[in-house]
Simulated assay, not measured.
Amino acid sequence: MKRHILLDTAPIPDQAEALCLFEYGEDFVIKLQSGKGGQLMNSRMHGSEDALAAIPCSKVAGRPAARVLIGGLGMGFTLAAALKALGPDAEVLVAELVPGVIEWNRGALGAKAGFPLQDKRTQVHNDDVARLLQSDAQGFDAIMLDVDNGPEGLTHSNNNWLYSLPGLTACARALRPKGQLAIWSATADRPFTNRLAKAGFAVKEEQVYAHGNRGARHTIWMCTLTGG
């Protein structure tokens, strides 16, 4: 019988919480140490994480030297999907706040996604994605955010700003004309959809299966910057 085996614990900066990496048979699972929110990530179910990058990156892949930003490394599947969709001259920046998550992706966990951190197009920053957004006006063709379980700060309280109108407006300023913004969530949220529109985006909600074509479905907001 399979059971969860704790492999490592990674503190979340400036929070009392920590992330825990478990081995579960042939798979890996990440949970909050407190148990709040249940299972955050599972290496067997990453269909929606793949779609988070595949859809927006396919729309900008034809741009010369496309430059994209991923907020949240997670288990590396979003990064791997972005690299697959983009050309050889692309640049993919990844902002990951928790140092331990970066180290997990360089080890055994990284093999599940094909070690995307080793790709020469990848630049990983141990930093808050909000800081990168605010320091690079019109710097990106696409931005993909998967920093929490939805449009609220579950794992880190500072994430609340990112999902606020000022945070979404900062995303808009960081995008090039007709840039793409994709945001992952475990559930739908109508007020958040309206907030995206107020920030200057044409918004489409996608419901994507977590694994294959059955079971739980997650929400991805696919947004195109208008007026550029």
Results as ranks from 00 to 15, higher is better:
151 P>W: 14
178 K>V: 00
48 S>W: 08
167 G>C: 08
30 I>K: 11
221 W>N: 14
37 G>C: 02
203 V>I: 12
192 F>S: 08
59 K>H: 03
56 P>I: 01
7 L>D: 03
171 C>I: 12
222 M>L: 15
172 A>V: 07
226 T>W: 00
62 G>K: 08
92 V>D: 00
63 R>T: 03
72 G>D: 06
158 N>K: 11
77 F>R: 02
4 H>L: 15
224 T>D: 10
83 L>G: 04
50 D>A: 08
228 G>N: 12
209 Y>L: 10
106 R>E: 07
63 R>V: 05
137 A>T: 06
67 R>I: 01
56 P>R: 10
135 S>G: 02
191 P>A: 04
153 G>F: 03
131 R>A: 12
100 G>K: 09
225 L>Y: 03
98 V>H: 06
8 D>H: 10
211 H>E: 15
60 V>P: 01
42 N>Y: 13
20 C>L: 10
133 L>G: 05
170 A>Y: 06
128 D>K: 10
66 A>C: 12
172 A>Q: 02
80 A>T: 01
204 K>G: 05
203 V>H: 13
74 G>A: 14
73 L>H: 09
139 G>Q: 01
205 E>V: 15
17 E>F: 07
194 N>Q: 14
60 V>W: 04
22 F>I: 00
53 A>H: 05
215 G>C: 09
11 P>T: 08
97 L>F: 15
195 R>I: 06
148 D>Q: 07
33 Q>E: 15
112 K>F: 11
8 D>M: 09
163 Y>F: 15
108 A>T: 11
76 G>F: 01
107 G>S: 08
222 M>I: 14
151 P>A: 14
202 A>C: 00
